[in-house]
Simulated scan of single mutants.
Amino acid sequence: MIAVNQLTKRYGRHTAVEDVSFHCEPGTVTGFLGPNGAGKSTTMRMICGLTPPTSGQATVDGHPYRELPNPGRTIGVLLDASAQHAGRTGREALAVAATTMGVDRSLVGEVLDRVGLDAVAARRRVRAYSLGMRQRLGLAHALLGNPRVLVLDEPANGLDPEGIFWMRGLLRDFADRGGTVLLSSHLLREVEAVADRLVVIGGGRIVAQGGKDELLAGDGTVVRARDRVALRGALERAGLPVSESTDGLLVRADPEAVGQAAAAAGVALTELRAAGGGGLEQLFLTLTAAADSAAAGPDQTGTDAAPTREAVR
């Protein structure tokens, strides 16, 4: 189990993560979603003991990561597939990890097979690995200690469609056997296919969380008015959760409640309808639209140097 309670991380005047709280239960895959710079990587690094929080706490099986006697036997971590010794072979890299964790080295071959790295790939130097192969090796490292928890940041990067399908099955099987998975990915459809729960972060704050079916079913109401500012003010005064949408304002309430709030404030509406079921992609875009526009720059974690689409999260 992962418990994140009121985590905040500040870098000088910049607040990367603010008052973030969520739980990941055994037997579930939790999709952790947000736009670039939203605070995903910072949060995951705090869970894994790599970045000290300014305030708040994250625990794994009831203990902060740094207090775990042998972390790799409790939590498997893959945050950066490139952070591996380029001069070692895949088998050597896992053998060193097995020795460090006190794991029987005979398990190295089993884990390599499990992640689809054959004997030829196992003898190859990591510097010659493709990104997809490095992802598989990183996942093998995460699984080597037979942990109860997995924390994976963009594990499908570099994988072909067959590899993505394979990873989906592996994570689903891990959770179905009682494991806990926290998965960050920009492949929204893959997250939708495998996740049980969703946590959406924007601008360093949690903007939505809950069961996948619950969040996707409760699309809410889309509403428009000529005076958008007055409409938003009326909805907020009525205590209705409201966010910006490409279609107008999205309100987490039924159309009747929205219409009554607007009428009470004397705001004339030009559109009022139930939001369409656009799936996880539409939910993500709607919830993070305001956070995207407010983001001033990258999430200053200092963890990802490659200037890729998901280099800063």
Rank of each mutant, 00 (worst) to 15 (best):
Met101Val: 09
Gly102Met: 11
Arg114Cys: 05
Arg123Glu: 07
Val96Asp: 13
Val120Trp: 13
Val111Ser: 01
Ala97Val: 13
Asp113Phe: 08
Arg123Asp: 03
Asp118His: 10
Gly116Val: 01
Asp104Gly: 12
Ala119Leu: 11
Ser106Ile: 00
Val108Pro: 15
Thr99Gln: 15
Arg105Pro: 06
Val108Lys: 05
Ala95Gly: 10
Arg124Thr: 00
Arg125Thr: 02
Val111Gln: 01
Arg125Pro: 12
Arg105Glu: 11
Asp113Lys: 05
Val111Asn: 00
Thr99Ile: 07
Leu117Gly: 05
Gly116Asn: 10
Leu107Trp: 14
Val108Leu: 15
Val111Arg: 00
Thr99Gly: 14
Ala97Trp: 10
Ala98Pro: 02
Val103Gln: 07
Val96Cys: 08
Thr100His: 13
Leu94Arg: 00
Asp113His: 05
Glu110Val: 02
Thr100Cys: 03
Arg114Asp: 10
Ala95Val: 05
Ala95Gln: 06
Ala122Ser: 02
Leu112Thr: 07
Val115Leu: 07
Gly109Asn: 09
Val120Gln: 09
Leu112Phe: 01
Gly109Lys: 06
Arg123Thr: 10
Met101His: 01
Leu107Ala: 14
Glu110Cys: 08
Arg125Cys: 09
Gly116Thr: 02
Ala97Gln: 14
Ala122Met: 05
Gly116Ala: 11
Gly102Tyr: 01
Leu117Trp: 06
Leu117Asn: 06
Arg123Gly: 10
Met101Tyr: 15
Leu94Cys: 08
Ala119Cys: 06
Ser106Asp: 12
Asp118Gln: 12
Leu117Cys: 01
Asp104Val: 06
Val108Trp: 13
Ala121Ile: 02
Val111Gly: 00
Asp118Leu: 00
Asp104Arg: 13
Arg125Leu: 11
Met101Asn: 08
Arg125Gly: 07
Ala98Phe: 01
Val108Tyr: 15
Leu94Ser: 04
Thr100Ser: 15
Asp118Trp: 00
Arg123Lys: 12
Leu94Lys: 00
